[in-house]
């Protein structure tokens, strides 16, 4: 097993300042939002790596950086040994680009309503001048739709079927890696099961690697081999699936697990977590989680914890053991 994606101290800062004139008149400083801060991890070939976190934790930004939709501010993303941000050999970049595809959250917004399904699926190949004869028909059957559907428009399909079309499009260029940004959160439970099963089957049949981004812990538990937990743009814990769910080490991970609704917890009375995710423009000093952390000590508010390895788990907490 080797790492197909290597991410090293990845940082992405967005400038969310007001327009220049307002800043001068109102004497405001620049506002910088650090969406991703010093995140490092590796994804093994043919595995599912899941990123979980609440809104604003930077999980989608990481996904977009990996596929090259957003450039990183600092740090390195290596896909199959090629750093897309600095590589100058165009043929290498092109080869890697074809190996990464993406599936988006909203299957209603990610398909062009004026194109037929055939054109949508063929586009990634046709754009490079490849041969598309019978491609859409073959892929549609592979994702559980029928070849006849190629002549239809997206509005003729339900949400689950549209997500299958998105998957077919992602498969068109014969990729090795698929970045899935909340692929099932717009779908109903029974349809979600169909799409997740399809994704598992494709992974086995085609040897795919998934970077799976989700806020739903139950989905992540079902799909992932390894899970990274993000909080305010920082990776706070990373562990293989069972390790993480059996023995979460970071207090945030523990809070997240306690807060998630469970189907076997009838009338459960829990002390709900306190507070909310802080403002990413002015994050707390030290450990970003310390204002909400039940076990925080003084050191947590001063010193940002480094990623430490404890057994199979990597955790960024001064107190975890």
């Amino acid at each position: 097993m080797s790492a197909i994606i290597k991410i090293e101290s990845l940082t992405r800062v967005f400038d969310v300042s007001k327009p220049w004139l307002n800043r001068v008149i109102e004497r405001l400083p620049k506002a910088l939002l650090t969406a991703v801060s010093e995140v490092s991890f590796e994804i093994e070939e043919n595995s599912v790596y899941a990123l979980v976190g609440e809104s604003g934790s930077g999980k989608s930004t990481i996904g977009k950086i990996v596929v090259g939709l957003v450039p990183p501010s600092k740090g390195k993303v290596e896909v199959e040994g090629v750093d897309l941000a600095t590589e100058t050999d165009a043929s290498k970049i092109e080869a890697v680009r074809a190996d990464i595809q993406m599936i988006f959250q909203d299957p209603y917004a990610s398909l062009n309503p004026r194109w037929r399904v055939r054109e949508i699926i063929n586009e990634p190949v046709a754009a490079k001048g490849g041969d598309t004869t019978g491609l859409a028909e073959r892929l549609l059957e592979q994702v559980g739709l029928s070849a006849k559907d190629a002549a239809k428009y997206p509005h003729e399909f339900s949400g689950g079927q549209r997500q299958r079309i998105c998957i077919a499009r992602a498969l068109a260029s014969g990729p090795k890696i698929i970045v899935c940004d909340e692929p099932t959160s717009a779908l109903d439970v029974s349809v979600q099961a169909q799409v997740l099963n399809l994704m598992s089957d494709l992974r086995k049949d085609l040897g795919l690697t998934y970077l799976f981004i989700s806020h739903d812990l139950t989905v992540v538990h079902h799909m992932a081999d390894k899970i990274g937990v993000l909080y305010l743009g920082r990776l706070v814990e990373e562990a293989p699936r069972d390790r993480l769910f059996d023995a979460p080490k970071h207090p945030y991970t523990q809070m997240l697990f306690d807060a998630a609704p469970r189907m076997d917890a009838f009338g459960r009375e829990v002390e709900p977590p306190k507070g909310e995710i802080p403002d990413a423009i002015n994050p707390p000093t030290g450990c970003a989680f310390h204002p909400r952390c039940p076990i925080a000590v003084e050191r947590c508010s001063k010193e940002r914890p480094e990623m430490r390895r404890i057994g199979e788990t990597r955790v960024a907490c001064h107190l975890a053991e």
Binding site: G160, S190, A193, H221, H222, M223
Partner: peptide, 19 residues
């Protein structure tokens, strides 16, 4: 079909078709 109910299993039970 909820992922929670099928912990550890390879595939989720799915209801065929749609409403």
């Amino acid at each position: 079909s909820t992922p929670l109910a099928s912990q550890g299993k390879e595939r989720l039970r799915q209801i065929p078709g749609a409403m």
